[in-house]
């Protein structure tokens, strides 16, 4: 009995790592031309765009809100970095693009935290508005740069310098790990979890919830814009709808990575790994030469299984609760904590 719950807890906790290992093993064994250095580079590069944007989505989710505007913000970062490049140079353009993303986040944050409008509404609105601004700015066409130096910068970002890690991937990993450490190891970082997980405790602890919500949205805007900008520099150009498909992948990955729509749960690193897992899956499916419908189907099946599994285990817990309290004693302490904390949130 005891060991069985141990396994369950272990699987629950490291779900995403096990999933990644499983998918990777399957593809390594069966997908043709999957296992080689070059393909690993491709996977890392492809995962970078959404993995970095997922940072922001995850942290907003941890705070108990939604940021649906990430896909427009990715495009915004990409379009602005290319648009500003001739006037500001690369570094200036990156700063400007990230600042613009941060501004979108600030607007989202203020509307959610101060004007008290639901984040779902606010970010659907800004999703549309930012997309419209991009169209007005570009006139509907993509932007590009074609200087020899621009190509050199692009090649530098995209070619591996260490094993199968190109600089763009290394930057992405550093940013993700940096945020992971910040959110888990520092006091202000942990406060984000408190704000989303238990508002009352946060209030009692003197945490200014509004400020944290606003910062979460700013981080989200910045991360999305930065990921779009880096991608654009790597391809020396930007389309007006670069991020349009990212939102659904990011939502799926964040949930598979263990975050909860109710807030207070999730990890930036695990969201990133979930994006990587989906990329490995897609890459492997491409190696089989099947159509894009299988990518959609496979990600749907994985997402559905994860959601169903989580919902079902919660459901079982709920049934135990209130009906047969003596059973609670048999649960392990971690699970018990979950139950009581969910009890608390319900009562609020």
């Amino acid at each position: 009995m005891r060991s069985q719950t141990d396994v369950v807890t272990f699987v629950n906790r490291y779900r995403i790592l096990l999933l990644l290992a499983l998918v990777f093993l399957f593809m390594a064994l069966f997908a043709p031309r999957f296992l080689n250095m070059f393909n690993m580079t491709i996977i890392m590069k492809s995962a970078s765009l959404n993995a970095m944007a997922a940072i922001g989505f995850t942290i907003v989710l941890i705070c108990g809100h939604l940021d649906l505007s990430v896909s427009s913000t990715i495009s915004l970062g990409a379009v602005l970095v290319i648009g500003f490049r001739p006037d500001l140079g690369w570094s200036g353009a990156i700063v400007a693009a990230v600042a613009a993303g941060g501004f979108v986040g600030l607007v989202n944050g203020l509307l959610v935290a101060k004007a008290r409008i639901h984040s779902f509404i606010v970010t659907i609105g800004t999703l549309t508005i930012v997309q419209g601004i991009i169209y007005v700015y570009t006139g509907g066409a993509a932007l590009n740069v074609t200087g020899a130096l621009d190509f050199a910068v692009a090649d530098f970002l995209e070619d591996p310098i260490l094993l199968f890690f190109p600089p763009r991937v290394i930057i992405t990993i550093l940013v993700i790990v940096g945020f992971e450490v910040f959110f888990l190891r520092t006091k202000p970082g942990r406060n984000f979890y408190m704000v989303g997980g238990n508002r009352e405790t946060a209030w009692l602890a003197g945490v200014k919830a509004d400020a944290y919500v606003i910062w979460a949205f700013i981080i989200s805007g910045c991360a999305a814009a930065l990921s779009g900008a880096l991608f654009a520099i790597g391809i020396s150009s930007a389309t007006t709808d670069l991020g349009v498909n990212s939102l659904m992948i990011i939502v799926a990955a964040t949930i598979i990575g263990g975050a909860s729509m109710n807030g207070g749960k999730g990890q930036v690193l695990y969201s990133g790994i979930a994006v990587l897992m989906l990329t490995v899956l897609f890459n492997g499916l491409n190696r089989f030469g099947v159509g894009s419908e299988f990518r959609i189907l496979a990600s749907g099946v994985i997402l559905a299984s994860v959601v169903l599994y989580e919902a079902y285990s919660n459901y079982k817990k709920e049934r135990i609760r209130g009906q047969r309290p003596e059973l609670l004693k048999e649960l392990d302490p971690q699970q018990l904590k979950n139950v009581t904390s969910s009890l608390k949130t319900r009562e609020l």
Binding site: T41, I42, K45, S46, L242, N245, F282, N283, S292, I296
Partner: peptide, 18 residues
Amino acid sequence: SPNWDLAEQNQMLDEAIN
């Protein structure tokens, strides 16, 4: 088919080169 996704098309091009 990258299904209208630029990131996906880039990935496929890299894979094709490979």
